[in-house]
Amino acid sequence: MGKVILTTGLLILSNTFMTLAWYGHLKFKDMNWSQNLGLISIILISWGIAFFEYVLQVPANRMGFKENGGPFNLWQLKVIQEVISLSVFTVFAIFVFKNETLRTNHLIGFGFLILAVYFIFKK
């Protein structure tokens, strides 16, 4: 149970950094310090943030992988990561991008992802 929680926790943290790296720069225009930055600067800042994603993602996958003594097979690790990624993104979009609306079709899509988790973990 410990590796399940640790793997999942690291994946949540990793995906938080990933979301910040991939989408956080879209809010830079609202910040005084970044208004004159060019695309190369934005890319470098995003890479700097994404570094921490990898620092957390790689150990999560290594310790969570069944062949390394973890509880998950490769397929399970991937689908867990995708569900966490969309969950973190949803929270980020709602609280950071207040003009984006969470709609019924989004929730239905997430429901299908939950079904994917069910089928991936089904023996």
Score class of each variant (00 low, 15 high):
Ile5Gly: 01
Gly9Val: 09
Leu10Met: 13
Leu13Phe: 13
Asn15Phe: 05
Met18Trp: 14
Leu20Lys: 06
Ala21Asn: 05
Ala21Val: 05
Trp22Cys: 04
Trp22Val: 13
Leu26Val: 01
Phe28Asn: 09
Lys29Leu: 03
Asp30Glu: 15
Met31Tyr: 14
Met31Ala: 09
Asn36Glu: 15
Asn36Gln: 14
Asn36Arg: 12
Gly38Val: 06
Leu39Ile: 06
Ile40Phe: 12
Ile40Trp: 10
Ile43Tyr: 11
Ile43Cys: 04
Ser46His: 07
Trp47Pro: 00
Ile49Ala: 08
Glu53Val: 03
Tyr54Ala: 10
Val55Phe: 15
Leu56Ala: 15
Pro59His: 08
Pro59Lys: 09
Pro59Arg: 08
Ala60His: 12
Asn61Arg: 14
Asn61Gly: 03
Gly64Glu: 12
Gly64Phe: 11
Asn68Arg: 11
Gly69Ala: 13
Phe72Thr: 10
Leu74Arg: 11
Trp75Ala: 15
Gln76Thr: 09
Gln76Asp: 10
Lys78Pro: 00
Val83Phe: 15
Ser85Pro: 00
Leu86Ser: 03
Val91Ile: 15
Phe92Gln: 00
Ala93Met: 11
Ile94Cys: 00
Val96Leu: 05
Leu102Pro: 03
Leu107Phe: 04
Gly111Lys: 05
Phe112Glu: 07
Leu115Trp: 06
Val117His: 01
Val117Ile: 15
Tyr118Val: 14
Ile120Leu: 01
Lys123Cys: 00
